[in-house]
Design a protein around this nucleic acid. Structure first.
Length: 936
DNA sequence: GCACAAGAAGTTTTT
DNA sequence: CTTCTTGTGC
């Protein structure tokens, strides 16, 4: 890739070892090459040892790669560099705490200690479990925060908030907030007012109302505000008014948030204590304590300081990581390397302003850290900027396209702030430029992609550079298909499997929604309680018809073979052994099965969960769609299918950017959290619960509704995503869309051709989507939907007046407790168990369920719009199985174990989904890479 | 050209 | 929860 002889800019970076540097290193500019050479140059000096130089990376694999390349080019061998500080921020913090961190918690007022046995909890799923456990105890101990428990829909929401605060360096202490944390929570009115004013400017020379006023059209509709909220017309003024009153900024910014602050504080600090007592630290807390340690313990700081600090992929760092880099710098020799255009990890708390506003932040953070002690250099830092402009990967045409992409609007109302002139332009080093940039379009998107790929393979028009530097016709392995979402990738894989198309998926799989997981869950349920919901799955898998299954379950006399297998499982000691036997029984041997085994085993080991808890853990995994990574090994001549995020850092001769057919973009994850932190307004609450009324009542926060429209969502990250995708390509870029190309595709200089997919489907009758495109009538009531929805306020809204009177002694009957109790009741009732309602809520549930008789529209996952008293209520859940026999279709929801059989209109029968094909793929001998995480 | 309302359709990414 | 579309009315 990059030439062994550095170009001028690389030379400058390599040679400039003293002082502060901000390096703009675009894709393919030989960044790793230059950074590793720079490192080598520094440590090869007689007075410098590897221990004097910190090279911080974002990922372990990047650290490994750096280390290897340094070994190749410096006087040091692998052994001498084995312990050199070339690491991720996280592992360095770990190291630091091991060495000096024993008393770190005391600086926050905590009595607990960090010891050699304190473990790092890497697994987010397990952390979520732990947090759930913590929060249950916290609720019991702190009844004073009851209003907030009602406000949260799940504890995970609070964990997310805590992690976000930690990523920004906002920490609690036992008697308040650490350093100036509280001021961040309170926000910055002046900064907010600037944004308010910007959004409140009338447009078109004053002829048109401000964006803010327009967005607030319909203010309060479908909302329940407290009585002190202004009416829509009071807020917006009468018709023809062009802007909101200036004073609104003040009104919405200032509200009493002391109870909120104190709730978040208490939960935060107690969770820190809980984690320490359980002897574990999460990734975020690792950084939190490292920061506190370096701030408070001068001796530790001095011992931890480096003469040289380099940070790779700086665009991916969080605020706290930036500050850690400063604290770890004993001199001004700080060099950060990155590319703001490739910052696509904001959900991971990466803060693109670290690099975009590097100079400002450097000055500000250094001043903050030095406010009450002399902690870091950089008092008068004047960082030098170095720009790497030579691109060794892509053709000029591809680079041009990418530089258009980074300034292309994502939607019609989107304004691009970036000035094209501010983008550091790259120049290509490619031997030849035969680049094809084109778009294809057909409503059968997947087929369109596949047939386009077929048209490219072996086609000289799409020649790529061979090993010898000469053009050669492309192969499958030269092509990568990128998508923004995992789902699209999996769909493409499913379609590809029908044609035996050589596709290799690389990325996350929704583990607990796979067949192996469902069967394992079923057997665990059988072992736990001989549960019908377990047996039903097992019998269905064997192939029994539903009436037969019903008979088994009713009589309790099971076929001998599965019953014998159950007895065999009962003999096994460990859950791991059970899992292995179950997976063996069904011949699940692929990557998914391996990862499942590992996952189940590790959860069980590390939380000492009982089997029952493991079952609930898996159930939650099904509900939340937890994913684990499965990486296909390269080598085979196959097209790589992956998300853009997964593809970052990689390169392919030909890139197909699929799924370019959505003009709209999804709301930001976390946007729906009830309690959230946002710059510059601090901690805010979207919904407010109040115990003042006889029945605790939920109000929407009108202030929040105004505030959030002053902080509009920017599409910069979508643009950066597109930029990352395009710059992966060496030679050719193809965009693929469905019927309607999105704004990106329309705005880019790409000819989009409507094509006829040439891949002949094996089965013309197979529907493109697993959906029953017809309405069916529910035979007798409620069975078959998830009672989850009964937690939903709308159900109560829709079914009549909310309960006014009631036992006042139950202030916590709403919110989570209420939800789960009603859920349990509803589930039991829906399943026909012999339960009788014991309070008004449950009576209401019975009334609701009995009253359901409307039309059912079944999809997968299921969304069931039901008519209740002529009004529409949406009830959702997951259908695990759509079973088709002849002219009947049966829908099962494993969670409720509910089944529903309905007749299918003849005309619709050919549209029925076929049983889902299990796609299994060889992934070579490599161990599957396991990265578990939650998906909100 | 602008204001306003209502409906429809989209509903992540993962070190 | 957001954006886009459509239709009505000033």
């Amino acid at each position: 890739m990059s030439d062994p002889t550095p170009n001028d800019a690389q030379r400058e970076l390599i040679d400039s070892t003293e002082g502060s540097y901000l390096v703009d290193a675009g894709p393919g500019t030989g960044k790793t090459f230059a950074v590793t050479r720079r490192y080598g140059r520094i440590v090869d000096r007689p007075d410098v040892e590897p221990d004097d130089v910190l090279l911080a990376t974002f990922t372990r694999s990047a650290a490994t790669e750096m280390r290897e390349r340094i070994v190749d080019h410096s006087a040091y061998g692998p052994r001498e560099l084995a312990d050199a500080p070339i690491r991720t921020f996280h592992s360095h913090c770990h190291e630091l705490l091991q060495e000096h961190g024993y008393a770190a918690p005391t600086h926050l007022g905590l009595d607990e200690r960090i010891t050699g046995s304190t473990r790092i909890l890497e697994d987010e799923l397990i952390e979520a479990e732990r947090f759930r456990e913590f929060f249950a105890g916290f609720r019991d101990d702190h009844p004073e925060h009851a209003d907030f428990y009602r406000a949260l829909s799940a504890p995970g929401e609070l964990l997310d908030l805590i992690e976000e605060l930690a990523s920004k360096g906002i920490f609690p202490s036992t008697d308040g907030w650490y350093r100036d944390g509280e001021s961040h929570l309170d926000g910055d009115f002046e900064a907010f007012r600037e944004r308010f004013d910007a959004a409140n400017q009338p447009r078109n020379d004053g002829r048109k109302q401000s964006k803010l006023r327009e967005d607030l059209s319909g203010f309060g509709r479908d909302k329940a505000y407290r009585p002190d909220a202004p009416t829509e017309s009071a807020l917006r003024g009468g018709r023809g008014t062009k802007r909101l009153d200036e004073d609104v900024a003040r009104q919405v910014f200032y509200e009493d948030r002391s109870a909120l602050n104190s709730f978040v504080h208490d939960a935060y600090v107690e969770y820190l204590r809980f984690a320490l007592r359980r002897n574990y630290l999460s990734f975020s807390f690792l950084q939190l304590f490292a920061f506190v340690l370096l701030c408070e313990d001068e001796r530790a700081r001095e011992a931890a300081e480096f003469e040289y600090v380099m940070v790779d992929e700086f665009q991916d760092t969080s605020e706290v990581q930036f500050k850690l880099a400063l604290l770890l710098s004993g001199t001004e020799n700080l060099c950060v390397v990155g590319d703001w255009k490739q910052s696509i990890y904001s959900f991971q708390y990466a803060d693109v302003d670290n690099i975009l506003e590097f100079e400002d932040r450097l000055e500000r953070f250094a001043a903050d850290l030095n406010a009450d002690a002399d902690r870091v250099p950089f008092d008068a830092a004047d960082p030098t900027r170095i720009e790497l402009r030579e691109n060794y990967r892509s053709t000029e045409s591809v680079i041009d396209l990418s530089e258009r992409a980074i300034v292309t609007p994502a939607s019609s109302g989107d304004t691009v702030e970036t000035d094209p002139a501010d983008v550091v332009g790259l120049s290509s080093n490619a031997a030849f430029d035969n680049t094809v940039v084109e778009g294809v379009r057909h409503e059968d998107e997947h087929e369109a992609v596949l047939s386009k790929v077929q048209a490219i393979v072996g086609n000289d028009d799409y020649a790529v550079e061979g090993e010898d530097g000469e053009p050669r016709p492309p192969e499958y392995g030269d092509i990568a298909v990128f998508t923004r979402t995992r789902d699209y990738g999996r769909e493409l894989l499913d379609v590809g499997a029908e044609y035996d198309f050589p596709l290799a998926y690389d990325g996350g799989v929704e583990l607990f929604r796979t067949d192996p997981a469902k069967l394992l869950l079923a057997w665990l349920r059988i072992l736990e309680s001989d549960a019908d919901r377990g047996w039903a799955v097992v019998f269905e898998r064997i192939g029994y018809a539903f009436d037969e299954i019903d008979r088994f379950l009713e009589t309790g006399s099971y076929p001998t073979e599965p019953a014998a297998f159950r007895d065999e499982l009962r003999e096994l000691e460990s859950v791991g052994a059970v899992a292995r036997r179950v997976l063996d029984r069904y011949g699940f041997t692929g990557d998914v099965a391996d990862v499942l085994l590992h996952s189940v085993q590790s959860v069980h080991d590390s939380t000492t969960a009982t089997r029952g808890e493991l079952i609930r853990f898996m159930e939650r995994g099904v509900e939340t769609g937890s994913t684990v990574d499965v990486r296909a090994s390269a080598g085979d001549d196959a097209v790589t299918v992956q998300t853009i995020h997964t593809a970052k850092g990689l390169e392919y001769p030909i890139v197909v950017m699929a799924n370019m057919n959505e003009g709209r973009f999804p709301p930001r994850a976390g946007g729906s959290s009830v309690i959230q932190y946002r710059d510059p307004v601090g901690l805010r609450q979207r919904k407010i619960y109040s115990a003042e009324r006889p029945h605790p009542h939920v109000y929407d926060n009108w202030r929040h509704d105004v505030i959030r429209r002053c902080l509009p969502r920017a599409y910069d990250e979508e643009r950066r995503l597109l930029y990352v995708a395009v710059t992966r390509a060496e030679s050719h870029v193809v965009f693929a869309a469905g019927e309607d190309p999105n704004t990106f595709l329309e705005e880019l200089p790409v000819a989009v051709e409507a094509i006829e997919p040439a891949v002949e489907p094996l089965d013309r009758d197979a529907p493109a989507e697993a959906e029953l495109p017809f309405a069916v009538t529910a035979p007798n009531g409620p069975i078959g939907h998830s009672p989850h929805s009964l937690m939903d306020e709308t159900v109560f809204e829709e079914t009549g007046e909310r309960p006014e009177a009631g036992p006042e002694a139950e202030p916590e009957t709403r919110g989570m407790d209420f939800g789960s109790r009603v859920h349990d009741f509803a589930e039991a009732y829906a399943l026909g168990d012999d339960v009788t309602p014991s309070n008004d809520h449950e009576r209401r549930v019975v009334e609701l369920l009995d009253g359901l008789s409307g039309e059912l529209h079944v999809e997968e996952p299921v969304t069931l719009p039901l008519d209740v008293d002529g009004r529409r209520v949406t009830v959702s859940g997951i259908a695990d199985l759509v079973h088709v026999t002849g002219d009947r279709v049966e829908v099962i929801d494993y969670k409720t174990d509910a089944t529903r059989a309905v007749g299918v209109p003849e005309a619709a029968q050919r549209l029925l989904p076929r049983p889902r094909r299990v796609v299994r793929r060889k992934v070579g001998r490599d161990e599957p890479v396991l990265h578990e995480r939650r998906v909100a």
